[in-house]
Design a protein around this nucleic acid. Structure first.
Lengths: 157, 157
DNA sequence: AGAAATTAGTTTGTTATCTAACTATTATCG
DNA sequence: CGATAATAGTTAGATAACAAACTAATTTCT
């Protein structure tokens, strides 16, 4: 070994590299299955509203998805244009808006879940639920660490 | 529990979700540290050429980074415009091109590594090398699975 | 050998995201 | 109270990736 390789840097790089590729593959794959007129971000928001209830502000949603506010504005606009969410102006604080999923949105979300289900089950069957269950807490912890770091850096802590 | 939640789907979703966020946070973070005139993709290619030697074709690089050929064309063009790589026409097969890192490219890469190093060491110190080492093989396996699936689907297997 | 298929690289057009900057509204503080 | 800060949402502009389609060169197959 002529050059003293920095193995620790390599480790982090490799992790980021694998994760980047997984993200890209997963996104393409999920987009293919979700529905012709919904992308993964739109579905994620729809799913969130269906599961946890509506009445969230775009800003709140942006934070929940670690996304910038402009990005969320775009997603909500598209969902609204499709009639899948309804946006309500704030009364108490007139800067705010509140987002609610519509019946059409619930239908679209149910439909997307239906389409997705076999594919997700296949992933679990082929790759294995144990490995996914092992991966999840590590990924969550790493995400939490990076997120915390970012908040500190941005002085949001 | 009124609705029978599909826990298996949730598991896969959560994994994808965490991974997506990690990818996004990591990219912003790394971009901040690498250098003013290099993004993560460009650095990755430069790093690859420095470590494993040049003489790769853009197509080969695209596969190595799980990227489309048009994307690699763009990255190589930008690196070439900065004088960090040299592109050589194929003699035997005149469709091909070969990419070599230049001295300026080696300098830029060394400089970027230098800037990155403290940040990467901090990640390892704070989050812990063990957890990263635990994460890596799982991520690699999951990536390999998804990649294999995609290849099969596209009939490249 | 010649037609058809494949491959390498590129061009074009689309999309999702980001940052910076703007408007309107509300909160803070001197 | 009134000026200044902060906040919610949006708009504008930039960028990095993708898919589809194109050109040129090579390989395969009949």
């Amino acid at each position: 070994m002529s050059e003293p390789k920095d193995l620790s840097a390599d480790l982090v790089f490799q992790v980021f590299n694998e994760i980047g590729i997984i993200d890209s593959l997963a996104n393409t794959e999920l987009t293919r299955h979700i529905a012709p007129n919904l992308n993964t971000s739109e579905f994620a928001v729809l799913n969130h509203l269906a599961r946890l209830g509506g009445g969230k502000t775009p800003s709140w949603l942006a934070k929940a998805f670690q996304m910038t506010r402009p990005s969320m504005t775009a997603i909500v606009s598209k969902l609204s244009a499709k009639g899948y969410v309804r946006v309500e102006a704030g009364e108490k604080d007139r800067r705010e808006k509140f987002v609610w999923i519509t019946d059409a949105g619930l239908d679209a979300r149910r439909d997307a879940l239906q389409r997705l289900k076999p594919r997700l089950e296949q992933v679990i069957a082929d790759f294995g639920a144990e490995r996914l269950r092992a991966l999840l807490p590590l990924a969550m912890a790493f995400r939490a660490y990076l997120d915390e770091e970012r908040n500190e850096r941005d002085g949001l802590a």
